[in-house]
Nucleic acid binder design. Structure first.
Lengths: 233, 233
DNA sequence: AAGCAATGTAAAGGCTGTGTAAAGATCTGC
DNA sequence: GCAGATCTTTACACAGCCTTTACATTGCTT
């Protein structure tokens, strides 16, 4: 929901002045921006780290933007917004058909760029959210009914608070996957996890206690330094 | 990939001539297009059926495009591409910040519109695909599950510390390539490698010991003076 | 072969993340 | 405005594990 902040971006642009300017603006808007100044360096970075969005200039030394995009798409699905001085249709269409997500002709308004970055992030969040929706889950002795907001353990109904339910729902809808405390905090409490904030720990502790009353399956495991995971089996 | 054909579209546009023209073109390209000629009718259709993408003109009778978008977003997450005669920045930014996925100023090339429709469809497919498949690496007897943070050797589950997992992940995601200690230190420990810092060596040592317990494949090799490499087979 | 630098690895603090009880703050329904 | 429920903060105990240290070993250079 508040993913707006902290997009991890890669800016591939050979004009140092423009690159620094953009970098400064986007950083001020809460993005984490990495820079590359030619196609090869950009591709190298793009394939070795993972970014939320890549901003890719078309006119680049060493390897041009289209080449970078083509090679990147051979292995990676990272969203790409192409930037270009050339404003003609053909270029735009070519970029989009090669697999770019968006295309922004220079000169552009910085705020429009940010808005387009957000648009892509938002769409991805929506789809992820939609694809994880399930009504009734029954995993490892625990049954969770999403729409009725009810949970039972081996048939024994639990009395959970809203937050406890939300935590359990997050964990159960990602069975077997580690869910970070930050993710939990954002989805359950609606805020980033602040240092020394122990709320999530306490909710998990209470949740475990309530579940353990009827079955000591230890279904909620701690992954030190990473988060919590709901175990299947 | 094969989503190219048969996108289900809703075109909300009051100019009948343009609407029919677009409709004809998009249909010829294999899209299933519904038409609405004012904002209210469009919103009605948009909320009662489900579309892959909605093409929304800004200047509309009864309810303008922004209003339609705002009301639609209250309940639906359908992708929206806004179309407008007004080319100014503010309009575009406003639309994007309201929740539009893309923004295309008139007059536009039909092929560009199609390319942008496809770009959105493609992104959605990618995300769906990515969010339902667990990232599994299986190299040289070692299986690593990224999202669950679990590792097994010939089927035997390993108990790794967070740092050991991170080191192994770095090495395995660059199979066959030498990863320098400095790179490892930066990605795994979050700091440059300082002189006399032996942490990485120790973690690699512990990792090897744990893996060797189940299979002495010596998959992690030392490249003296350069770093470490995870060997395939 | 000697010497040096890079690496392997066991062991020992010491720091950090986590569990949990209890107190304090905030919300909610009446 | 009150009472009860719920959430957050605080505090302390504890375990895990990261780093350091020290010494052994390896491999390259001359």
């Amino acid at each position: 929901m508040k993913k707006d902040v902290m997009s991890k971006l890669l800016l591939i642009e050979d004009d140092h002045t423009l690159s620094d300017l953009l970098c400064e603006y986007l950083s001020a808007q809460g993005c984490d921006v990495s820079q590359a100044f030619d196609g090869e360096a950009g591709l190298q970075l793009a394939t070795s780290e993972s970014f939320d969005v890549i901003l890719l200039d078309v006119m680049l030394p060493v390897l041009d933007g289209f080449e970078v995009l083509k090679k990147l798409r051979a292995t990676h699905l990272t969203p790409v917004i192409m930037l270009t001085a050339k404003g003609d249709d053909f270029d735009r269409i070519f970029g989009l058909e090669l697999g770019a997500d968006d295309y922004l002709p220079k000169p552009f308004n910085h705020r429009e760029l940010l808005a387009r970055i957000h648009a892509i992030g938002r769409r991805i969040d929506y789809v992820k959210q939609a694809s994880q929706q399930t009504q009734l889950m029954n995993i490892n002795h625990v049954t969770l009914n999403e729409s009725a907001r009810r949970v039972s353990v081996d048939g024994h109904e639990l009395t959970l608070t809203g937050t406890e339910f939300a935590v359990l729902y997050q964990l159960m809808s990602h069975v077997g996957k580690v869910v970070s405390k930050d993710t939990l905090s954002q989805h359950v409490l609606g805020r980033r996890l602040a240092p020394f904030d122990r709320s999530i720990d306490v909710h998990v502790s209470n949740l475990r206690k309530k579940i353990a009353k009827y079955n000591d399956c230890n279904c909620i495991q701690t992954i030190r330094g990473s988060g919590y995971v709901f175990l299947d089996q």
